[in-house]
Design a binder for these strands. Structure first.
Length: 617
DNA sequence: TACTTCT
């Protein structure tokens, strides 16, 4: 059942004015695209379920077969997010209509769910659920789930929610837009409701849950979404981030906060001013967790988690979510987790199958003209309007401003977003882009992760990122919720180090790779460089370079390799030298009692170079 | 090196 179906079906029915009660402002006017997860059509190819919940090596389903056969796609109904809709309208409609929606959907889409590759590793993994009803989330939350039109849990929700409800720590790889936010919000809200963990208004805010994200805009987005989920439950959610007046945020916090969404800098500030204490934290969730633990953020995260007053691992639940999870970051992450379960969900939602990836060789001096040509072509096609937004990524903040000016000069309405703009300008830019009044957004990586902007038809990598993970996140801004998308990259001589990883990624996504790019990729690997030199360049992973050589180039299964890494990360990574087989041994040791990732040959090469980056997690 | 992230 699609959004438009729901709407049509309900029209002949009497509406219930009694239910048209107060709708809070945040639910009134917003055009929130809520993917109807119920609307999967059957995947285009036969697929298999990779989830293994067995207790011994031999018991998992699908073990040892289907490696590399991980190209499944769920295609969401194209109608579901075509038209922005008013969520308050939907809330009321669904009050009338949801029973019917429920029945119909369940019979329709079970098969599609079974087809999504999911892998989990860890000990005593709670079984996934097929419906929200199977989990006792509580009445208030159930109501909101219906109101949001989440008829059926997405794969990441199916797996993550029972895990978190069971009190376990979690590291989850699932693409943004696949219901990741809900996957950590539902169990948190439910836990607060069930265990009566409510906090009281206090001069020092003592939230029970902390959700951290790497950018202010993403924190706002999570906050908005969490508020929908907690609507009328009494669970109080607040957000704090830099660049906005702190006094207003103080006042919000003083009213009491159960769940605090924050960016790290402002949170530290709040804690140091004794306006926030983490002593009551029961839940810690990191969104875009790999970003949060890389060089720029890791010290702050470490400070927040280890050096403030947050309870230790054993007294809280910790959840890490991201679409990409390079293994060395997994190793770092394991520092903050205890006995965690690793879950990787294949191509949920915005699959890169739905994103046509193009790479064009362009000389630096020609980039601007090339861009203008592309945009002119788009304009001629009519794919240049409110419903076909173009997101242009550049390397630097100055470059973003320069390109914004250039485009405006050339008659293309563009606006830039980057970290040198004041917060008001940033928000204005995003809003203007979202609404379509400025259909071209020129952005730095501030906009590369997590942001859910409907109708982004084209992502242009004017400057390619250094890291393939960033590429994955950037192109993931299009092709969302079953819509197709286009991603064009301008490749210059400078991007040579990215060639190999880019080719691998494109091949995985069944994209046509230009011959010249394959040649570049081969050259790069012959030089001994390849994408991963760049990935682990600098001092980030200097001491562990040996692992790049302990890989089999033949392995193509990103899932199992990533999971293998996850399982091995806390145990095996300190080995001085290890071959694939050593990891295999360490892995099965680490996973005693758990179905492990067999086969003895892990794709460490792919995983370390681009496996975690593949974006299918 | 640039990009995020507090005044």
């Amino acid at each position: 059942m699609t959004w438009s179906d729901a709407r049509n079906d309900s029209t002949p029915k009497p509406t219930r004015p009694a239910r048209l009660t107060y709708i809070p402002p945040h639910l009134r006017k917003k055009c929130v695209p809520v993917p109807n997860y119920n609307a999967y059509s059957l995947p285009t190819e036969s697929t298999h379920l990779e989830f293994r919940n067995g207790r011994g090596r031999g018991r998992g389903r699908g073990r040892g077969r289907g490696r590399g056969r991980l190209y499944q796609t769920e295609r969401w109904n194209q109608n579901q997010t075509q038209a922005p809709f008013d969520i308050s309208f939907k809330f009321n409609e669904l009050d009338v209509n949801d029973d019917e929606a429920n029945t119909e959907s369940e019979s329709m889409n079970l098969e599609a769910y079974e087809d999504i590759p999911v892998e989990a590793s860890g000990s005593d993994i709670p079984a996934p659920v097929n419906t929200f009803a199977e989990i006792d989330l509580g009445e208030g939350l159930n109501q909101n789930i219906k109101r949001c039109n989440y008829v059926k849990p997405t794969p990441i929700q199916r797996h993550a929610i029972p895990i978190v409800m069971a009190g376990r720590d979690l590291m989850a790889c699932a693409q943004t837009g696949s219901g990741k936010t809900a996957a950590f919000c539902f169990p948190i809200i439910s836990g607060i409701l069930n265990q009566n963990h409510f906090t009281r208004p206090n001069r020092v805010a003592c939230p029970v849950a902390l959700i951290l994200s790497p950018t202010r805009e993403l924190s706002c987005q999570i906050h908005d979404e969490a508020k929908k989920f907690a609507y009328q439950t009494g669970v109080k959610i607040s957000v704090t981030y830099g660049g906005a007046p702190i006094s207003q945020q103080f006042r919000n916090l003083e009213r009491g906060v159960d769940i605090l969404v924050a960016t790290p800098g402002r949170l530290v500030d709040m804690i140091e001013r004794s306006r926030v204490s983490l002593r009551a934290i029961k839940y810690l969730a990191l969104d875009e967790a790999d970003r949060m633990l890389d060089m720029g953020f890791e010290p702050q995260i470490r400070k927040i988690v280890k050096e403030m007053d947050m309870p230790p691992c054993s007294e809280r639940q910790t959840m890490f979510f991201s679409a990409t999870f390079p293994s060395e970051i997994q190793r770092l992450a394991s520092d903050f987790l205890s006995n965690y379960i690793f879950v990787a969900v294949g191509r949920v939602g915005s699959s890169t199958d739905l994103i046509s990836q193009r790479v064009e060789f362009v000389h630096d001096v020609d980039k601007r003209n090339h861009l203008i040509n592309l945009l002119q072509g788009q304009r001629a096609n009519g794919t240049h309007s409110k419903n076909a937004l173009t997101l242009v990524f550049v390397e630097t903040k100055r470059g973003a401003d320069a390109l914004e000016n250039w485009l405006s000069m050339k008659g293309f309405p563009a606006i830039a977003i980057h970290g040198d703009k004041v917060q008001m300008e940033r928000e204005r830019a995003l809003k203007s882009f979202r609404s379509g009044s400025t259909p071209i957004l020129v952005a730095t990586d501030v906009a590369s992760r997590g942001l859910d902007v409907p109708h982004v038809a084209h992502v242009i990598n004017f400057d390619l990122p250094k890291d393939i993970d960033d590429y994955v996140h950037r192109i993931g801004r299009t092709g969302r919720a079953g819509n197709s998308g286009l991603a064009t990259a301008f490749f210059t001589e400078k991007n040579l180090p990215l060639a190999k990883a880019l080719v691998e990624l494109m091949q995985e996504a069944k994209q046509e790779v230009p011959l010249w790019l394959s040649d570049y990729a081969k050259r790069a690997s012959n030089v001994g460089g390849s994408g991963r030199i760049n990935r682990f360049g600098g001092n980030k992973f200097g001491g562990y370079d040996f692992r790049r050589d302990a890989q089999s180039e033949s392995e193509n299964d990103y899932h199992s390799s990533t999971c293998g890494n996850a399982a091995a990360s806390s145990y095996a990574l300190s080995h001085a030298v290890a071959t694939s087989n050593d990891y295999a041994a360490a892995n099965s040791y680490a996973n005693t009692g758990v179905d492990s990732y067999t086969s003895g040959s892990y794709g460490y090469g792919h995983n370390f170079s681009s496996g975690g980056a593949s974006g299918w997690h």
